Simulated assay, not measured.
Amino acid sequence: MFVHIPKTAGTTFLTALGALFGEQHLRRLQDDDLHPDAIDALIGSPAMTQVRCLAGHFPVHAFAERWERFQAFTMLRHPVDRVVSLFWFLRRSPEDVLARMGLAPGFSLDEFLAGEVPELFAQTRDGMCRMLCGDPTRSDPGHPAFWRPQVSAVAPAAAALERMGFGLVEEMGASLRLVAAEMGAPFALPNHAENVSSRLATPPTSGQMRRIVDLNTADLALYEMARRRFQRRVAVHAARGADGSPPRPDAVWKAELGRETPICAVAGRRGFHAYEPRIGLAWIRGDRSADVAFAVPAGRRRLVLRVYGITQDYPIGDLRLHVNGVAVRHRVVRDRGGWAEVRTRAFRIRDGEGPNLLSLSPPFQVPAARAHPGSRDERALSVAIATLRLDRA
């Protein structure tokens, strides 16, 4: 369970979780899912057998009666940075969102901090403690505790962190390594997403900084406690080193022979951009090869990939494939509009226990805006994967 506190690098973390479990097995909860009856119905539904991770902007008290069912974790961020990031995020939001927050287009930081619409008020005033303390009154605008300073929420929020895994936005690399180790990932989780807000931000004045600090004294206390605890966890992890334990089964693609699997259902991925559901594919990143950890019965196998090139004449045939470090030859069957099928020659899987490792390395990247003039996509892209299939050879 990922308790997603707003403006704590959720895009980075959700992208990593989607790659770890497969986006098809990641369920993002909305407000309508968080009523007790809805939670009971969700947990008891047959669909939950396919869910590996729940994620969303929900306080821990929403699952208080079911906490033991989950391995929970969250991300924290320095409270001043988190509030300033929220300000810049909302400055780019459409007018209907601003109206819901009681803000007018072009609002100032002072107007933002003075906002008293509950949804905004809760996030500019100790938003982390409110979500973690386990007290439903801190999330209820109809209760006086919602409007009071949240200093008394520090201790229960800190106690909740004792029962959870957590990371720090300011230490994202170490945080993802810890999560990977604690969750049994087959390799380090990717750290690719960029915080757009940081490019837009101008520093608050000293008076505005003092105001943010005054409004978030509880979160500052919680963050400092968490930061010291996080440093101890990093030190312990470094001292232990790699223990050689196998990855968790649901973090590896369990390939069913002869069955085509969409990329969003493939767990154990690294080196991909976030899955794009509208098109049904995930692009390979250009800064390294893309890897897929998989388990399949031992024997002679062939791999079939449904792929898409950034341009119709992109040399998909130059895509390099390795299985467990051994190069695998392949041929390409072109389809219309940039689509193609990559069919490998037979290779042998000697150990069916896994995990095995498939690596894909494209020859070069093309800026998306150059390949498709008018595109606002700032990425450089090469080949995207839509489906994978392992066959008997």
Rank of each mutant, 00 (worst) to 15 (best):
E23R: 11
G271C: 10
L161P: 10
T124C: 14
L168M: 15
R306Q: 10
V84L: 15
F89T: 00
R288A: 15
V83M: 05
M101D: 10
R69P: 00
P262R: 11
S197Q: 15
A19N: 14
L109H: 04
L303S: 04
V3T: 07
L319P: 08
I263D: 06
L113G: 09
T311Y: 02
A295I: 05
G115F: 00
L321I: 15
R248P: 06
R345K: 12
M209K: 09
R27K: 13
L34S: 08
M225E: 13
V333Y: 01
V326P: 00
R100D: 15
V292F: 00
T387Q: 12
S206C: 01
V333S: 05
W339L: 13
P277E: 09
F112M: 10
A346I: 01
A159F: 00
D33I: 09
A99N: 10
H372W: 02
G127Y: 00
G56R: 07
A265V: 03
H372G: 03
R343I: 12
R229D: 15
G22Y: 09
T202L: 12
V3E: 06
S361F: 01
L222Q: 05
L26M: 13
L113R: 06
A340V: 08
F87P: 04
R345T: 09
Y275R: 06
H35T: 15
L357P: 04
D214S: 15
I279Y: 08
A174V: 04
G299K: 08
L17D: 03
G22E: 11
R28E: 13
D335I: 04
F73N: 06
D219Y: 02
P246G: 07
G352I: 04
G18D: 15
L390S: 03
V296G: 02
P156R: 05
G354N: 06
V304T: 15
P315H: 13
F107T: 14
H25T: 12
H25V: 11
T15Y: 05
P94H: 09
H78W: 03
L178I: 01
S361P: 00
R163Q: 13
N356C: 11
D126I: 02
D291N: 07
L76E: 05
N324I: 03
R77F: 01
E378L: 14
R130M: 01
M172W: 04
A295P: 00
W283T: 07
F58H: 03
P156T: 11
N216E: 09
W67D: 12
A193Q: 14
T205F: 10
R370C: 02
R301L: 13
V51E: 01
G56S: 07
R331L: 04
R306L: 11
D81F: 01
